[in-house]
């Protein structure tokens, strides 16, 4: 049943890259990707939760009764999310301010619950770890890419540095929420186009 560990890791990077292929976890994808820094920060927080919850769920998969598995997953995920939130508040406060409500909302991120339910509950620990790590890095990369595109075009900056100089008039529509949908859709289209050949 179990495929190679490398496969489980690699699939999250392109074949099943979360926001573009699985189209999961769209709420943070759309909401926090107004800049590269926010996107990557959110991605890393999600990766941490994903890896930890995948390991724990996989460890406990023989113990957790299937009838209450969702409740158990949520407790595990919520615990790690709160851990991330507290740590971020203590050590990366500016990022915490930027991400705000979307940190606690990782709890209801479909991606985390989805991986726990669909993968970690059925697979051994090492596989779950690499699956979580792959998915998390894929998620981080996509959020970073989306954030970078929106930041460059939407505000003319990248990581706070001006990209095009002061004569550039930013396309502020992309920073707004509808711009996130359009941008995500276009990137999805480009990705489908690229992988079709």
């Amino acid at each position: 049943m179990a495929k190679s560990i490398a496969y489980e890791f690699g699939k999250g990077l392109w074949k099943e890259i979360p926001p573009f292929r699985l189209v999961l976890g769209l709420c943070p994808v759309l909401a926090v990707t107004t800049s590269l820094q926010n996107g990557v920060g959110m991605g890393l927080a999600t990766t941490f939760v994903l890896v930890c919850s995948n390991i724990l769920v996989s460890m406990l998969r023989k113990v957790i009764p299937s009838k209450v598995r969702i409740a158990c997953f949520i407790i595990i995920i919520a615990t790690f999310v709160t851990v991330v939130e507290l740590l971020m508040q203590a050590y990366a406060y500016t990022l915490y301010l930027q991400l705000g409500i979307f940190i606690p909302l990782i709890v209801v991120n479909c991606l985390v619950l989805g991986r726990a339910e669909a993968f970690a509950y059925k697979n051994p620990i090492i596989h779950s770890l690499s699956d979580g790590l792959g998915m998390g890095i894929g998620f981080t990369l996509s959020l970073g890419a989306l954030g970078a595109v929106r930041e460059i075009i939407g505000s003319g900056e990248l990581l706070g540095y001006s990209v095009f100089g002061s004569s550039f008039k930013p396309f502020t529509f992309l920073i707004e929420a509808p711009g996130a949908f359009v941008c995500l859709g276009l990137m999805l289209a480009i990705m489908n186009l690229a992988s079709k050949k």
């Binding site: 406990l60 113990v63 957790i64 009764p65 209450v68 409740a71 158990c72 407790i75 595990i76 919520a78 615990t79 709160t82 851990v83 507290l86 740590l87």
Partner: peptide, 18 residues
């Protein structure tokens, strides 16, 4: 049992961290 143990473990960890 499982739910209780899991929740108390989680609660303890978070309280300590907090």
């Amino acid at each position: 049992l499982v739910l209780t143990i899991l929740s108390s473990f989680s609660g303890g960890l978070l309280a300590a961290l907090k």
